[in-house]
Design a protein around this nucleic acid. Sequence first.
DNA 1: CATTCTCATGTAATCGATTACATTAATAAT
DNA 2: ATTATTAATGTAATCGATTACATGAGAATG
Lengths: 368, 368
Amino acid sequence: MSTRNVRKDKTNGSGTSVLQKNVRIRDVAEVAGVSTATVSRALSNPELLTEATRDSVFAAIRATGYRVNKAARTLRTRQAGAILVLVPNLGNPFFSQILAGINERLGEHDMSVLIADTANLATAGEFLVDHFLNSQIDGVICLDGSLPETELEQFRKNGVADKIVFACEWVHSAGLPSVRSDNVEGARLAVRHLHELGHRKIAHVTGPGDNVLTHARRQGMLEERARLQLPVRDEWIVRGDFSLESGRSAAMRILELDEKPTAVFCASDQVAFGLMSTLEAHGLIVPDDISVVGFDDIELADFYVPALTTIRQDRRALGTKAASLLLECVEPKTTRPADRLKPVVVGVDLVVRESTAPPKNASVSATG
Amino acid sequence: MSTRNVRKDKTNGSGTSVLQKNVRIRDVAEVAGVSTATVSRALSNPELLTEATRDSVFAAIRATGYRVNKAARTLRTRQAGAILVLVPNLGNPFFSQILAGINERLGEHDMSVLIADTANLATAGEFLVDHFLNSQIDGVICLDGSLPETELEQFRKNGVADKIVFACEWVHSAGLPSVRSDNVEGARLAVRHLHELGHRKIAHVTGPGDNVLTHARRQGMLEERARLQLPVRDEWIVRGDFSLESGRSAAMRILELDEKPTAVFCASDQVAFGLMSTLEAHGLIVPDDISVVGFDDIELADFYVPALTTIRQDRRALGTKAASLLLECVEPKTTRPADRLKPVVVGVDLVVRESTAPPKNASVSATG
DNA sequence: CATTCTCATGTAATCGATTACATTAATAAT
DNA sequence: ATTATTAATGTAATCGATTACATGAGAATG
């Protein structure tokens, strides 16, 4: 009813409420009395414009309720303004904080975050290349180190390999940028803690065999065990896969041993929960009968019974740093390509709670 | 090394690896000896073409390694081929399975799934409208019922309100499509189970005050309590917010009561964990001293100590159904708009584990 | 005062796919 | 044989923003 609000031109018949008002950059230009180029500049390079024109453009933008059409921009600039995060398993609460960190950092740069679960992806490589060549994404943060070499090869072949960074996990073969916790040190801390409590017979439930984290944590564990000259037994290294269920079966294995460990260092908190749950179901008390240390420090660790002693990863930092690293790859500024390849390592901490205690009948003196 | 693996076609001179090969639809057309229109049709309406042309087009597509440029398509068709999921808190493992369900269903329709955490979003409404008008998304699945009315108003004003479906949570005020569990029934089942074990004094830790789930579950709880003529006490209804931490404080509140309940029905598994953790820390044994029931049945429920008796929601079904519903809104086929507004209700089950048992000194006979 | 240089802005081509409309060939109807 | 009809394909406009290049107005220089 008022005088100057309408742009009736394209009332596409239907008459109803479907006011598909399509404010284009041209409309803004018209209102502001400038060219579309000027409007575009006001948005991307405001410093090129007179303060006067700039103001009038922004006024027009506000007046019209204009929003950039991302599809058009993407088509022209070949930049999607979005990145994709590949998660091995969204069901694992471990990843949430990382995602939050990624979101936080990329949000500052007006980038959207797509998330895909590799479990749902028959062919992650195909999928990714597709998205890249589609200009649907500008980069990838991969939290899954188990991408087969063939898929990585696809990336290289299609020239998108340099827009991928790994976080948490990584692939040793290929020199790709990554952000990771100090897993070896974490494992050392765990074993040292148990040793200081007086434990000597320490078991370890690993992750899946081909996983880089499995390797790093096992290695740290073995190193520290050797350094402290602790007894060694093959059966004390139990294969797991980071899952609750594998904690359960590890517990079963351990319960069957004739020479039982007095403490177990688990490769993840989930494993520790599965383990403790099963141990308790079989009448063992944690930590009285057996101590348990986890890895990750997910939120629940503090709320388990008993509260879990574990190695804290700074998941949020992992997320933000991965995002920053990716931004460097996508829109390089400071770093040189070579510098990006050195893994960014985030420190870890031991968080002592209630799942660890001195072993039952042990003289807690010793070396100290 | 083998003979037939190579596709050397477009070695565009440069020799190096940066093969920015930009296969456009025009290139395919050229190779196939047809027009771009025909190629486009081969992709979207293959039945319009002769088998012969169709074949040659697909051959050309394969030969060139062509991939549709989504940005261009989106620009032209105004369809993004992507939907956005609004999650209240990615850290809550409850949501993962729902996301998996959504992914599964939408993947079948070549739709990407964007995920955003409302916690990181200052202004969800603004954000969404932006994405819609940007043609970055075709629809939204919202898992967060706490969107303020003002934001919903924005949706309506911008004509995007009919491309939103709620899942799990919903907004009562606005008639928007939704998929939800039978929360009232779930609460009834929980109370009934406790009653059958012999409990009479039953407490309830609710969700946050303004939440629809809080309301539904509390209502179901109150209904069943009334039906069974159980004693009523205001202090037995404790305000929580679905979080671990709120379970902890609820426990503190309950520990201070002079007339203590013998069982607690928690509005979420997380609350139950927080509660049990704190009760045990204060020397109470679950279920011997007090029984606890949760709601959700997240994976960890079976691995807690004691394993949690809880109400199972079929999260995956919630996800797939929400996705299907949204697809109906976005590309309507069978249903009429009005039919979409009736909430889709997914059934729930009681899963009995070890956190519930008859109360300490109770005659387990009674009514039955 | 003429000339060169800057700076702000405009003009128009372009990104790649879709699709209304036009054209042609093939078939059916008169 | 001629016209009407249908089916298959082509032509070219279009979606909306960006940006190389062009233009023109002042400022600076000689």
